[in-house]
Design a protein around this nucleic acid. Sequence first.
DNA 1: ATAATAACGAGA
DNA 2: CTCGTTATTATC
Length: 795
Amino acid sequence: MTAKSKDREPAPALPVARVCVDVPLPHLDRPFDYLVPAADDAAAQPGVRVKVRFAGQMVNGFLLERVESSAHARLAFLDKVVSPERVLDPEIARLARAVADRYAGNLSDVLRLAVPPRHARVEAQAMPAVPTPEDDPGSAVPAMVSGPVMPDGPGEAVDSAAADEPVSTAVPGAGAVAAVGADDAVSVDVPGAVAAVGADDAVSVDVPGAGVVGADDQVSVDVPDMDAVPAVGAEQAGDGQPGSGGAHPVDAAPVAVEPGRAAHSADAGAAVSSDASGSFAPGWADYPAGPAFLHALADGRPARAVWSALPGEDWPARIAEAAAATVRAGKGVVAVVADARDLERLDRALTKVLGDGRHVALNAAAGPSERYRRFLAASRHRVPVVVGTRAVMFAPVADVGLVVIWDDGDDLHAEPRAPYPHAREVLLTRAQLAGCAALVGGFARTGEGQLLLETGWAKEIVATRGTLRARSPAIAPTGDDPQLARDPGAATARLPSLAWQAARQALQGGAPVLVQVPRRGYLPSVACAECRTPARCPHCSGPLGLAGARSVPTCHWCGRAAAAYACPACGGRRLRASVTGARRTAEELGRAFPGVPVRTSGRDEILDTVPGDAALVVATPGAEPVAEGGYGAVLLLDTWALLTRADLRAAEETMRRWLSAAALARPAPAGGRVVVVADGSLAPVQALLRWDPGWFAARELAERRELGFPPAARMASLTGKAEAVAELLDATHLPPGAEVLGPVPAPDDQERMLVRVSRGRAAELARALHEAAAVRSAKKAALPVRVQVDPAELL
DNA sequence: ATAATAACGAGA
DNA sequence: CTCGTTATTATC
């Protein structure tokens, strides 16, 4: 078996394999060449896992491509092909490289995120092990293929080989979106001839607007967040990046979301087809640009949209319809949601719209074998639609036609493992590279979403004011109202009277009431138990907080203890927590509304749905159950705890949580009300009252532009021991105009520095940081420094 | 981790 | 100048 190198013969054709080895060192972040033993010629296809001897030890790796020769003189043989399963799709290999570049990370790190660990038994069970000609990405046209599409279901699905036979003729590559189909040109007739990973130049030629996707051009690959595109009235187009300006898809690609009609000229009778798409997805007709978008998807055109969902919107159904339209065009879909609950809803909606076996849902909850099984179902092109939590952003599908992210403001979309990519950015990069459609949806809109609109990369899908009026609940603010203490019912439940009335009315009408309270321990501050005046520090007027149940109140700002606190308003000496956990709120509310069932949904126990009967539902943000028929009232409590957080995104996050909760209320005509306990003059409150996430996002983005914060600028954070961070910064060729901020103390005796550049310099910065990290890791003394581009936590 | 290679220094 | 030993550096 283990024949000596000398005894082995290299494969006759394309004897060199370029391999990405699984080592996390930045200076080794490039392909290494190995000889393919003749015996492994058939199995050693691009995308397979291999084992190689690297620096004296055996390491895993991915075979990226087969080539004729190597610049390197003496090559070692591949030790073995782990499995002929081609788990790394060429499209994903390109995407992973782009993501690594964007985030100053290693390809191997990204591949660890992109390809789940192998599970040999699953691989063997589910399929013939040897790749057949049908596996050629060029001829696998799964979406429209009739015949059995085998779900690798929970049971021991044994697939017949017949399931793989393509029934229809090869369509991909037709039309503008030829990025993936470009592989056809080098089809697998010649074993090993698939040069897809290196084939960038060939691809970029035919694809309108994809000229920007040149392989080694770092800057252009980073386009999806439009570093090279001028924001409206702001930064100028990519400094010194010839070719990226005019060739940008914004100019070239048909973004078919013109309100009320399909924008593409190829679209004869746009009005008619609009109606047609409206009829297969009537829900989208509530948005003027909706039918055109769906129509574009059904035509396989790369429309890109930022969608502000209407309150009460059945968003899983809308996404399912968009997916179905894309499948109708013979293309694949990748959709990412934040958590398991959202995934379950989307999963159900897709089953309803597409039927069984046309999609897989993937999340971390499934064990490794189930996860790999479903990954294989996608990878083997058994299903055209893959949905899941953030890991599926890298899921392979045949000829991807649409990527979707729902609620992109949710922090769960940020990957916590190096190089910390964000699902939205990954998916947009993917849409860019593949030339496919993209849908960024949510009740709220992020600064990033707004930027996509302002740069023209995507078009807006929003309802008219009229539709909004008909669908929105009645929303009113109420300050911390002085009447409070005099309202006997409210006082016990610390509800302002307006909130109390709204709840009572809804309950009397037999409708459920949602009460949103911040998570426990969020910012436990205290107030006077008598008059509710917030307890403030006698020295600096900062907010007092209670660390433990029976501890001394301590100032959040100056840290001084206030043992002998007396309320300046009423002289009271007793304090109480002014931010209470969901459970305690539930108990208090139960007392205020005797006889009404109270249910809680939070961290430990999350409810998916509640029946449409009178009940109080107390939930923490993100855990709000959907009520059958909608809530009669939604109360947003203790809002200052959200609004006063020091986080850069505090206001945006607050807005997102409010909109998500308020969206679960009935429309005003059906009696739905929302009461937000906050000052009506605050911008997020204003935006909520008018249900105008777009206005708020524009305002937020303008502010960040002014302050030089992301996404208006690009930031990177460097965390580690002071000397290590300094060393890294020293080795970095910072782009012109880069600002270095800090240091800020970080946990474990470390510190953190921030580097800021304009968006036009973002790619340059990432490259510089990666190179500097490579220099450091090459002379291995290096204490670790964590490099994060777009860090989730800023300030 | 380890193998190739550069650098170095002692002795002919 | 050569050989043997040790530091360095690249890792196919």
